Computed example of a mutant assay.
Amino acid sequence: MDKLSDKCLLCVNDQVIIGPSACELQKVVTKMNDSVKKRGMKVNVSKTKMTVFGKSESTTECDIHAEDEKVEQVKDFVYLGSTFTNDGKHGRDIERRVDTKNKVNGALFTIMNSKSISRQACFAAHNEV
């Protein structure tokens, strides 16, 4: 486990835990899990994801466990509105943001062309933005 040279990242309840190796990351996760249990809570492992960052798209398998369950390893995830990928590239993040913008613009276009809304209301709303 210690031979993993890539950085490991675990996203838990909008928290990011970074470890220099799988072994070190597992130690932190175990400590976090023990701390949560002492407070009468439980880690929701189904909502917990982890990734291994490297320089290529190939995935290094990494077994991290919480609550005696294996944490799902993913190639990408969204954190605070940004997409992080295991290869460190930004293409998917930019693509996701453009897609989101296009969906919003499409919805606004539909509203502005609606027969049930006056042109004055659309113009006023557009100028307030």
Rank of each mutant, 00 (worst) to 15 (best):
G54R: 14
E57Y: 01
S21M: 02
K47R: 15
N102W: 09
E57M: 04
T59C: 03
N33H: 12
V36Y: 11
R97N: 14
D14K: 15
A125S: 14
G40Y: 07
K115T: 15
E61L: 01
D87P: 11
D68A: 08
R96K: 04
I18V: 15
F53K: 10
F123N: 05
P20A: 02
N102E: 14
A66I: 06
T59M: 07
D99G: 13
K31I: 11
T48F: 02
T60I: 05
K31A: 12
C23D: 08
T48R: 08
M1G: 10
K49R: 12
A22P: 00
L80K: 13
N86E: 00
F53S: 11
K38E: 12
V74H: 01
T51N: 03
K38P: 01
L4K: 09
M41P: 04
S21F: 03
D93K: 12
Q73M: 05
K75E: 07
Q15C: 00
L80W: 06
V52I: 08
E128Y: 13
C11F: 10
V74N: 01
P20C: 05
T51W: 02
Q120D: 11
Q26M: 03
T51K: 02
G106P: 07
K75I: 06
M112N: 15
K70E: 06
K38V: 06
C23P: 00
G106S: 10
T85N: 14
L9R: 10
I94M: 14
K3F: 02
F109A: 13
F53N: 08
S118E: 08
G40S: 09
N127L: 06
S82T: 15
V104M: 12
G19T: 12
R96H: 00
V29I: 15
S56G: 10
K49W: 03
E95T: 15
A121M: 15
Y79W: 05
T59A: 07
K75V: 10
N113V: 10
V29T: 15
G19M: 09
C23Y: 11
N127Y: 00
T110C: 12
V98Y: 00
K47W: 09
N13G: 03
F109D: 09
G81I: 08
V12P: 03
